[in-house]
């Protein structure tokens, strides 16, 4: 359904709408902060360049087509379909008349794609952020840093299991405050 609008949305509005969609499994982060929102292309076709997929209820002048590329954190990530639906809903609410969400695998997602802001938000939510993987070509050699307890800040933590509540997390325990916590494991 298309809500009648006085003017079509500008690109910035659409980009902001996509950038603020939260991750279904880590809702403290947006898809953009998680680094899974790869690309967003906006075009405004007129009848001259495309008549094939013209929605009958939208006047030609108001057509706004958005194509979004997302990438899974893990190949088996079950949240991918929800991400696509959430993006489509947000973009349509912002005024897009046509939304296509495509899944791309290359280049493969890495925890290095999580933004600085995203790392702070993970920490604040009690989830230890991933360490740098050191995969960057030509960059400095990665150091093995200790993983801090997101509750008390202690570096004295032990791995309980490499696999936790979701594929992207490991389960650890703080040996100072004795609380278990999730850690987004490096990928």
């Amino acid at each position: 359904m298309v809500t009648p609008r006085t003017a079509p949305p500008d690109d910035a509005t659409l980009r902001a709408a996509a950038a603020t969609v939260p991750d279904p499994e880590l809702p403290v982060l947006t898809l953009a902060e998680l680094g899974v929102l790869r690309e967003l292309r906006i075009d405004r076709p007129t009848d001259q360049d495309d008549t094939s997929s013209h929605p009958p209820d939208a006047p030609p002048a108001a057509r706004v087509r958005v194509r979004v590329d997302i990438t899974p954190t893990y190949t088996g990530c079950p949240a991918l379909e929800t991400m696509a639906t959430d993006l489509e809903t947000a973009l349509r609410q912002a005024g897009a008349t046509e939304v296509t969400v495509r899944t791309v695998l290359s280049p493969a997602w890495s925890t290095d794609d999580i933004t600085v802001e995203g790392r702070h938000k993970l920490s604040a939510a009690g989830i230890a952020p991933p360490r740098p993987t050191g995969h960057a070509e030509g960059g400095p050699v990665g150091l093995t840093l200790t993983i801090r307890c997101p509750r008390c800040g202690s570096t004295d933590t032990t791995l309980l299991s490499r696999f936790s509540s979701t594929a992207c997390k490991a389960l650890r325990r703080c040996d100072t405050c004795r609380e278990p916590f999730d850690h987004v494991k490096e990928l």
């Binding site: 899974p72 893990y74 190949t75 088996g76 990530c77 079950p78 309980l160 299991s161 490499r162 696999f163 936790s164 509540s165 979701t166 594929a167 389960l171």
Partner: peptide, 15 residues
Amino acid sequence: EEDVALANISLDLLG
């Protein structure tokens, strides 16, 4: 923990 680990590995393979 092992239940969760094996299920996670299974999910990766399913993907």
